[in-house]
Design a protein around this nucleic acid. Sequence first.
DNA 1: AGGCTGACAAACT
DNA 2: GAGTTTGCCAGCC
Length: 102
Amino acid sequence: MDAVERRERIWQVIASIPPGKVATYGQIAELADIGRGARQVGRCLRELPAGSSLPWFRVINSQGRISLPQGPSFDRQAAMLAADGVTLVNGRVSLKEYQWSP
DNA sequence: AGGCTGACAAACT
DNA sequence: GAGTTTGCCAGCC
């Protein structure tokens, strides 16, 4: 599988995360059949245009935190999640309740 | 080719 | 819980 195909799979998986739910990088990597390629998911998101239709904000790290340095983009993600009904408690979401299970 | 980097993760202390 | 260390793997010099 080439780089393009991986990206497409990643997009596909992220696009299928239902509203009100979140998924971890590792989880996405696994569902996209990339195995331990969690970092590739991150690299992929890094390149997304600001107005992408992809629900990139539903992707968080294994600790349930936004894996982004404080900044405008961090704030956008937090806001989108909130709008999605996902509440951040101490900068952290409860994977227990909100993690997507396909 | 070889070394460095990182929107990660799991296992440690 | 908060830091560190270690394993990981595609991109980019």
